[in-house]
Computed example of a mutant assay.
Amino acid sequence: MGALMLAEGGTFQPPGADSFVLPPIFGGVTKPMVLVVLSAIIVGAYFVIATRNLKLVPSKGQFVAEFFYEFSRNRIAREQIGAKDFKPFVPLIFTLFTFVLVNNLFGLIPVVQFPTMSRIGFPLALAAVVYLVFHGAGFARHGFFGYFKHIMFPPGVPKPIYVLLAPIEFLQKFLFQPAALAVRVFAAMFAGHLMLLVFILGGEFLLLEASALMKPVSVVGFLFAIAITFIEALIQVLQAYIFALLAANFIGAALSEGH
């Protein structure tokens, strides 16, 4: 999670962006790379094992697996894409939700303690997949020129307004939406982990380096760290949900007959 950095004279130097730059474990392989691969193994292995012997009265493992699948299928994909078109996209939405969730929760697991999505490259890669899928679905549904008409010229708008609206809609669909999808989860994981570092390392500094009078204050830092940990856990789950929800929403908008 990062070592305490002390300047000369024992003054506390708070953590910053450099705290997220981790040295390679071996070769050019870094901890976040290992965690991404590990998360894919964890998600795949869990659902294979949990659904290997399906029962009418599910075990706890089967119940959790079915809950995540049902939630991704009906509460995200079906509601955002529509009952007519959602089924082909359920595997993608389910994978995005569970994959992002596990990578976010890595930030709370002892020893690991690093949310992979706090490295912008990983959210960008996932956003690129969503980008290709929802635009590909739109082109397949409406045709090449029909899709541009669909996203840039919504019906019911006075024609002179299209001069301003068309480029805005184009930039929104082809640039701003996918960028915001990646930045949203990255910023939340980066900021949350940075806050945890501040209070944990601050409490450690007060406990080990401060005067005897100030050492009890370290308890406040640790208490804030515990409180932020619970808040961060909630945010990590919400961000995984929001990422999958927005991905499904973009697909649904691309496939819709109206704007």
Rank of each mutant, 00 (worst) to 15 (best):
K55I: 02
A3D: 15
L35Y: 15
I242T: 14
A244T: 07
I42N: 02
F71S: 02
M117S: 04
L54K: 13
L35F: 15
H193R: 08
F89R: 00
V163E: 02
V100M: 05
I200K: 12
V64P: 06
L56E: 15
I161N: 03
K173C: 04
I49E: 01
A253S: 09
G16M: 02
P167Q: 08
A17W: 10
F144D: 05
M1P: 15
F250A: 04
K159V: 15
H150K: 15
E8K: 11
A253K: 05
Q80D: 00
E66S: 10
L194S: 01
P115H: 06
G138Y: 05
A227R: 14
L207S: 09
A127E: 08
M1K: 12
A179N: 09
F106Q: 06
F63G: 07
L245K: 11
F190A: 03
I42E: 02
G2H: 13
A127N: 06
L165F: 06
L206R: 10
G82A: 03
A187E: 07
F106W: 12
L245M: 03
F186S: 13
E169S: 12
A40M: 12
F86T: 00
L194W: 15
M33K: 11
S256D: 14
A125G: 10
P14R: 09
K215N: 07
F144R: 09
